[in-house]
């Protein structure tokens, strides 16, 4: 073919994923700066034991963020996870209370099954009956929260009613690393692999990026959508057991409003609520930043009451900066046009 043809399809530049990498780099720089400032004011920050605390405290949030990312990728949202955490935590705690000898692994599985059941039901509503995700999960949030109170009769399960084995799920450690961190790392490896390297994982992006096209291409959109809610539920179920084990208390109002924290961390990590874009790497950064803000502010004598306000401001700043960067990119692209 001729040179003329070459002219229009050869770009000369090899575009990279400038936007996402740039944003993640920005987050990373911000985290480093925050850490640096905190370290200067309080040398106890970057110590092994404090970092261990930091990551252990971020583990549950980051596990949930993986599920939330998949849900947001399909243009959905899940408001029910706080309630699911409470239910699965309560169910496993009640079981431990009744049968103290139950092995911890069974407790974990039990919680995950409870979560899976909830997630599968929500997935059905969204994928099969086209109920808007925000409504389906809002409805389930109420139902599940109510169920949690009902099965516990409004009572708490406290630490003395839990077996030591159960409490060790969260407080124990493997080769000196907190179980929570180990579990989170395993989750990230499994789901990182699933999202980035399997067909179904990639189809989550496709479905969120362009649902109509996914239908035309014959991708089973409904199956993918169902799957993400089922996975989100399962992760929330797991998180529920970890939560109850960690705080050694199961209550009806465990994790009220936590769903919004998770969504905030996910968005902070660069996942778009309108679907299709977001990466696991960004997610990790988002969760870590959340954890750093949580952990570091008290160390530099920022009153804990400032934390929420600071967190909110950081989230707002992150999304707004993202918009401004994108706008600038568009203006740049226009300048390159001939007209």
């Amino acid at each position: 073919m001729t040179d003329e043809l070459r002219a229009s399809f050869r770009t000369g530049r090899r575009p990279v994923r400038f936007g996402e990498s740039f944003r993640e780099l920005g987050l990373l720089v911000f985290i480093v700066v925050v850490c640096g400032v905190v370290q200067l004011r309080n040398p106890n920050f970057l110590t092994l034991s404090n970092l261990r605390d930091l990551f252990a405290n971020t583990a549950i949030l980051s596990i949930l963020a993986v599920g939330m990312m998949m849900v947001l990728l399909t243009r959905g949202i899940d408001l029910s996870i706080g309630a699911t955490i409470a239910l699965s935590g309560m169910v496993s705690a009640l079981t431990v209370q009744a049968i103290p000898t139950i092995p911890p692994v069974v407790s974990v599985l039990e919680g995950m099954i409870v979560g899976l059941a909830v997630g599968a039901a929500i997935g059905m509503l969204v994928a099969k009956f086209d109920v808007l995700p925000i409504i389906a999960t809002l409805g389930f949030m109420n139902v599940i929260r109510g169920l949690t109170y009902l099965i516990s009769n409004g009572a708490w399960v406290s630490s003395y009613q839990m077996s030591a084995g159960f409490q060790r799920i969260a407080s124990g450690s493997l080769f000196g690393v907190s179980n929570l961190i180990v579990i989170a790392v395993v989750i990230y490896i499994v789901f990182g692999y699933f999202i980035n390297h399997t067909r179904t994982g990639r189809q989550i992006y496709a479905v969120g990026s362009n649902p109509e096209a996914a239908d035309i291409a014959g991708l089973s959109r409904r199956r993918v959508v169902w799957l993400v809610y089922a996975a989100m539920g399962t992760l929330a179920g797991l998180a529920g057991v970890l939560w109850v084990s960690k705080f050694a208390s199961a209550q009806g109002d465990t994790a009220v409003g936590y769903e919004l924290d998770v969504i905030a961390a996910t968005v902070l990590g660069g996942v778009s609520i309108s679907g299709g874009s977001g990466r696991v790497s960004g997610l990790i950064l988002g969760s870590v930043l959340f954890g750093v803000l949580d952990n570091a502010l008290p160390l530099v004598n920022v009153s804990p009451f400032w934390q929420e306000a600071i967190q909110g401001t950081v989230i707002l700043a992150a999304v707004v900066i993202n918009v401004l960067v994108k706008r600038n990119g568009q203006r740049y692209a226009l300048r390159k046009r001939v007209i």
Binding site: Y205, N210, A217
Partner: peptide, 19 residues
């Protein structure tokens, strides 16, 4: 199709081979 069948967020390779 004119516009519909591309996934803007995915790479060129994925757009070619998806599914």
């Amino acid at each position: 199709y004119q516009h519909v069948s591309c996934y803007r967020d995915l790479s060129v390779t994925e757009n070619i081979f998806i599914g």
